[in-house]
């Protein structure tokens, strides 16, 4: 461990190890509340009757919506907890995200998400010594198909 480095040996051990799988339920009401919060009026997300008559045949989840975690909690919060436990700085900002949409997600789906820390780096920023963690999450639906991949950056300082 370099002098002044934020990346402890405990943190290094977390890299690449999958954490506990998170189970999400994609519910109609949850989709509706989510798009109402964004202010997206598309009937594909808001109106189950309309959506059921389209090729989607059910209410569609908007990009990035994966439902509500019913087992094991919110992915970023869980990751953050494990990072802090391993010695990472306690203040956190969301650095950004990259989403790859593989198959549609809609009401009634049950998704299993497996988070994994892909990499940890650090550098000096205007926040001081700052740690950057890239977390990858693969989402698989009830049919065993991978539907979404996400890659998030957590900033800790």
């Amino acid at each position: 461990m370099a002098e002044g480095s934020l990346i402890t040996d405990e943190l290094r051990k977390l890299i690449g190890v999958p954490s506990e799988a998170i189970v999400f339920k994609v519910e109609e009401g949850a989709i509706q509340r989510y798009v109402q919060a964004i202010g997206d009026p598309s009937p594909l997300y808001n109106d189950p009757d309309f959506a059921s008559k389209t090729k989607h045949r059910r209410l569609v989840a908007p990009p990035g919506f994966t439902g509500w975690p019913v087992k094991a909690g919110r992915p970023t919060e869980k990751l953050f907890e494990s990072l802090v436990k391993a010695g990472a700085p306690p203040r956190i900002l969301d650095g950004g995200v990259e989403l790859e949409f593989i198959e549609p997600i809609g009401a009634g789906d049950v998704l299993t998400a497996t988070p994994r820390i892909a990499s940890i780096s650090e550098r000096e920023t205007r926040l001081g010594r700052t740690m950057f963690t890239t977390a990858e999450i693969a989402f698989v639906n009830q049919n065993g198909n991978e539907v979404l991949k996400s890659r998030s950056t957590l900033i800790q300082f």
Binding site: L44, P63, D94, G95, G96, V97, L99, E100, F101
Partner: peptide, 12 residues
């Protein structure tokens, strides 16, 4: 309706 979003990324 006929388009497909494959990837989306952003930095905060």
């Amino acid at each position: 309706e006929e388009g497909k979003l494959k990837k989306l990324s952003c930095q905060y």
